[in-house]
Amino acid sequence: MLETACYWVIGIGLVFDLFGCIGLIRLPDVYNRAQAATKCVTLGTCMILLGVAGLGFGRADWPMGVKAVICAVFILLTNPVAAHAICRGAYLSGVKLWEGSVEDAFADRARDLRDRQTEEGLVSHEETETP
């Protein structure tokens, strides 16, 4: 009974993983791709891990279950942070939003951040700007 439920959880996680990667291919710009891929792959992999944990606990294989739960917590905490860092980095490195975007409230703040960097002499954005 528990075993069947765990296999179902793993199966649903795999399907979410696949949808996330299809999103990576089909969506138009970095921000949308990061969004779809992060959500789907994080939850998908967490479900796989929780399914494995359930199977491990069911077989009284405690180390496997505990490690799977710890790994699920790590992934749940680190993946959103990574997506946020990449998106911020992408915006500051000059990647434009998709042309169908309707609003951009981050432009002013990004300009401030870049000015501050240039003042501090950390980097000159004229050189790194992509055409």
């Binding site: 996680g13 795999l14 993983d17 996330g20 990667c21 990576l24 970095v30 791709r33 990061a34 891929a37 992060t38 792959v41 994080t42 998908g44 992999t45 796989i48 891990l49 494995v52 799977a68 790994c71 992934i75 993946n79 990574a82 997506a83 990449i86 998106c87 980095g89 992408a90 490195s93 990647v95 992509t130």
Partner: peptide, 22 residues
């Protein structure tokens, strides 16, 4: 662009965790 590749690399890392589970 470079950020596209970075996102994909991050996702690939998470998928490998899934591989390890299986």
């Amino acid at each position: 662009t470079a950020p596209d590749r970075t996102v994909a690399i991050d996702i690939l890392g998470t998928l490998i965790v899934g591989f390890c589970c299986i």
